[in-house]
Amino acid sequence: MAKILIVDDDPDIVLAARLCLQKAGHEVFDANNGDAGLRLMETVRPDLIILDVMMSTATDGFQTALKLRSPDPTSPLLGYRHIPILMLTAIRSTTDLRFAPDRDYLPVDAFMDKPIDPDDLAKKVNELLTKK
């Protein structure tokens, strides 16, 4: 069982992910924007973060991921750099072709296209948790 933080502004997506992850035995927390998600880090100390790309702004998810992975020694989030991030994208299928996880491009560990497929999500989350 792991603690998973979902950061997404769409309550339906949060609910779907929550149902799926709880079924798999995980403890689920959620926040509806990037800053709220970052504020929860201290209290929740999640084992995995699921981030939506586009929230209040088109780059909210990217910004949040960048803050979490910032190598800046003064960053208050320095202790959370190791937490795996799964990014939920609403990007069209063509773009997926080059949207493979790439540390240079974006500091996240994996991508998943919306809508959420319960089997795929459970599988991907397990992969990321065991890799860690």
């Binding site: 769409d10 339906d12 997506i13 609910l15 779907a16 992910a17 149902l19 799926c20 079924k23 609403a90 919306k114 809508p115 959420i116 497929d117 319960p118 089997d119």
Partner: peptide
């Protein structure tokens, strides 16, 4: 896209017996 993928995600939770 947002409402559609939201709806799709919810329906899938039901077809997967999560609800």
């Amino acid at each position: 896209r947002s409402p559609v993928v939201g709806a799709q995600s919810l329906v899938r939770t039901m077809t997967h017996d999560l609800a």
